[in-house]
Amino acid sequence: MVDNNWLAPVWTLFQQQPLAQGIGLAAMLVGISAFRQRDDGRFRLRLCLYQGAIAFHFLLMGASTAALSAGLSCVRTVASGHTRSPWVMAFFLLLVWGLGIPGINSPVQWLPIIGTTIGTWGLFRAKGIVLRLSMLAGGLCWTSHNILIGSIGGSLIELSFLFVNCHTMYRMWRQPLPNPS
């Protein structure tokens, strides 16, 4: 007989905030589709859709620093698809630091700021596998944050992203996309 008591804390979290947790779980599906993309343009588009949805999830969870970081990340992701300018990158870094750091009142709130910083660098300065490695490093920060604040969808999302992202990097390494001439 299987003991399902390990699900009780997860179910309790879901019952406490069903709308927020439901949006977080739906966002997970969009995010997984992003990290399955080998094409950087499609990756950015789906990543932005995910970031918008997860920002709303965090807002409903009362995690304002994470909501701010995720919302800014959506705008940053779109901008990084149009320019690789270090000045635009610096603008987004200053924006997330200037708006996020003053609101920090616990150590866990640093994790989205650090994760967003790493992801911002990657989106503006890296391509291919290096881009995904930076997203992996930032994702480790977000995974830790989401587990610590009790976000079911956010935790599952980031854990899924870590796995899917590693699998996609492996595919990219084994079978690189042909370079357009």
Rank of each mutant, 00 (worst) to 15 (best):
M1N: 13
V2R: 15
D3I: 08
L7Y: 01
A8L: 15
P9E: 11
W11V: 15
T12H: 05
F14Y: 12
F14P: 02
P18N: 08
P18C: 09
G22N: 06
G24L: 12
L25P: 08
L25H: 01
A27F: 03
V30W: 01
G31R: 06
S33M: 14
D39T: 06
F43S: 02
R44C: 06
R44S: 02
L45D: 03
R46A: 12
C48A: 15
C48Q: 12
L49Q: 03
I54F: 03
A55D: 01
F56E: 07
F58R: 13
L60W: 09
M61P: 01
G62M: 06
A63C: 11
A66D: 05
A66E: 08
A66F: 07
A66C: 11
A70L: 04
L72N: 10
V78T: 12
A79Q: 09
S80D: 14
H82A: 07
S85Q: 05
V88F: 02
M89F: 02
F91L: 06
L94A: 15
L94P: 01
L95D: 07
L99S: 10
L99E: 04
G100D: 03
N105V: 07
N105M: 00
S106Y: 02
P107H: 10
Q109K: 06
P112K: 08
F124G: 02
K127C: 03
G128Y: 01
V130C: 02
R132D: 00
S134L: 01
A137T: 07
W142T: 00
T143G: 02
S144A: 14
N146M: 12
G153F: 14
G153Q: 01
E158W: 08
L159C: 11
F163P: 12
V164Q: 00
V164E: 00
T168A: 08
T168E: 06
Y170I: 13
Y170R: 15
Y170W: 09
Y170T: 13
R174G: 06
Q175E: 14
Q175A: 14
P176I: 03
L177I: 13
